[in-house]
Amino acid sequence: MSEKEHKVSRRQFLTYTLTGVGGFMAAGMLMPMARFALDPALQAGGDTDFIRVTSVDDLTEEPQRFNFTIEQEDAWYTSDVDRVAWVYREGDEIVALSPVCTHLGCTVNWEGNEDYPEQFYCPCHFGRFEKDGTNVPNTPPTRPLDVYEMEIRDGDLYLGRTVQR
């Protein structure tokens, strides 16, 4: 191959190699920092323990509010956090609803508004849910209330994390 057929000039070759090597070194420096910052977004969600909430015998057809406490691990800070569940039974079936409104995360209450009996009511933007958690059409929420994963051991109700329906 003669001199003239060289497609890459000396200057171009130097530009490519120097930016290549420089870019590699910069990436080696910046990559750990980027991964470090991304860590919370890439961490797998931890398992949640099932916590005893109540005896199954105490459940009624009417949704009742139950408070229970979970141990929450938040990076270097571990604390006891209060959780709420609205639980009722329908025949043999037990339903445990999360009180977090699916619109913007306020807290709903069973019959929280006198005008809407037999419904969950959210005071923030007047979102409403039926007894089984289904969102009432033409109110802000767009999906039903989340339900708790549950286990029944020796006649006691244990609740885990919430799942979307």
Partner: peptide, 17 residues
């Protein structure tokens, strides 16, 4: 101290940064 321990030992590449 706890946050330094966490970022060094629990966060990916924390020990490098």
């Amino acid at each position: 101290y706890e946050s330094v321990y966490y970022l060094q030992n629990e966060v990916t590449f924390g020990v490098i940064v």
